[in-house]
Design a binder for these strands. Sequence first.
DNA 1: GGGTCACCAGTTTTT
DNA 2: CTGGTGACCC
Length: 681
Amino acid sequence: MFDLNSLNPQQRQAVEHDLGPLLLLAGAGSGKTRVITCRISYLLQQRQVAATQILAMTFTNKSAREMRERVEQMVGRKACKGMVISTFHSLCVRILKSHIEKLGYKKNFSIYAASDQQRLVRDLLRDLVADSSAKDADRILWQISAAKNRLVSAAGFKPDINNPDSCLTAEVYPRYQKALKAYNAVDFDDLLMLVVQLFDEHPKVLADYQQRFVYQMVDEYQDTNPVQYRLLRQLSCVHGNLCVVGDDDQSIYGFRGADISTILNFEKDFPGTKVIKLEQNYRSTGNILASANAVICNNNKRRVKALWTADGDGEKVEYLLCEDDEDEARQVMERIHSERFKRKLEYRDFAILYRTNNQSRSFEEQLRYEDIPYVLIGGQKFFDRKEVKDLVAYLKVLINPFDEVNLLRILNYPRRGIGGTSADRLIRLSAESERPLWELLQQAVMIEDLSAKVVGAIDNFADLLKRYRQRFTKPLQMVETLRDLVKELKLDEELYRQENDPQKARRRVENQAEVINSMASYLERESEPTLAGFLERVSLLDDDNIGRNDKEKKLAQDAVTLMSLHSSKGLEFPVVFLVGMEEETLPHKKSIYETFDIDEERRLCYVGMTRARMQLVLIGARKRRRYGSLTQRDPSRFLSEIPEEVLLRLSSEVPRESSETEKEQLADSFFAGISNLFGDS
DNA sequence: GGGTCACCAGTTTTT
DNA sequence: CTGGTGACCC
């Protein structure tokens, strides 16, 4: 059990709060997670609340897992049985698994991730606009997603006449939704939206969940979008014990539909709300907090709070102005070396944070050059890699043969002689006859205009799918079956054939092998494994997803961390380098000229600053190589918001970088010298 | 059916 | 400077 006396008064008040809505405004580093986990433990132990009555929602699997582990540590594993701690999406998948048939889908539905969605929208758009590009499709998809986040259905979508994209979306959205249903597939946004719809249309189903979950908690409430908000309202309105935890100053996912006013309006929406602010910070030095506070208080729409620490001021925050991007990277290396020595730190104590992922390059180069171990967080996710998706596509189709996006994906992968022309013919026929593609594939002989060779290929393909579908019904032999599938498809050969660079090809083969490993570990962990269950985990990037494991494995070793400001939320490091502190980078260009949301950029800056425990170094460059050419840069406006007395301004004093012409002159005279040496005339 | 070339655009992204 | 895409050609 935990000691209530180890909490500060506000934390304790939050933990002991019993009935009625609670808004916990938890500043960065204020012990938020501790309060949630303690509160759950308190409910279980002190208030004798049954574990099954508790629902805790998070945004990431990682925080869900951590939360559960910490509660289990406090009250024991047994006491937690039946408690639901999960992400919004996982919870919704669970609900849909039991009830989706009420909405006209089948239980074995596929979950479409970004690439599946893209492929579908591209195809649909091509039917409408002949010269449509992938970029167009992405923009449309973006609009569809934004609509779904706002709970706007295909039928309810009203185009903005002045916006051509929006008009196109009005055309595509209904077709997209219709196709998904035909393919028995749902996208990520649907997972939430369909549950809201289910609850609206089937009050009895809703009532069951309302009765069950007496206490509800939501982490990172500032990141909820309108659909999630609606879901929480539906679930909580009977018992009214909704406890939300968040920090409006750390709302950085507005671009994904998160609405900061949701947290700002909480008391209005839930009358009788108790508000508790956690402002004592247990992470950063006084100077770091002073500068972060000074920056964030320039935002207007926010709940006023000011982080403070009982500890000392610490070192001043530094602002280091460098010559260019290369210099910026070199300066960071130098600081890593010296700080590591001076403060006896390890590589893992350093983080380099940036606004956009492409900023990582110069640092990676320099780190490699200096032989400093580093981990790059973000970038391409494991299950987003083509070769992985290709293999997973087979599994998806085996579960749900109506999943046409994935069926088309594997139809000619690896190449089996069913090319674009034949595929087009099949698709057209499928549309005309309104029969699923899978049905046609099973009777390829009946189709006119297909050569005997193609018919043979299709027959073999259909036969292969049927065979493996049969075999995968034996879950315990899943891994063996998958191995056989990879072997039979000769996927290794295919990868070596596609890739010129044998090294790359080998990596891709290994990635496919990782899928098999992932399945093996799923099989070990799960008491009732199924192929569908495995796919569900893969789709939701659940705990034994490889990308995540990789990330954690990497964090465990001693290495400098490189990541975007967005990825840094929730983490902390003794020394933080916040790089690229320049106008048009932070704040980003688009936020200045297009979206006009400087406040969110300021919050992003704030999140980055508050990651630092001991030392915060803000870095910018005078000029920077962008898309090949050198451009002048201005210091970020956020720098001028930091009080001078906590800021140490430094300028890198490197020997002035010689210009290109000077270099050429230097080279010329060098070669001239050599020629002279050899007595050339 | 697949490979090559020219062109274009270039945030963030928990699931 | 890059990577990704689509048109075009064999």
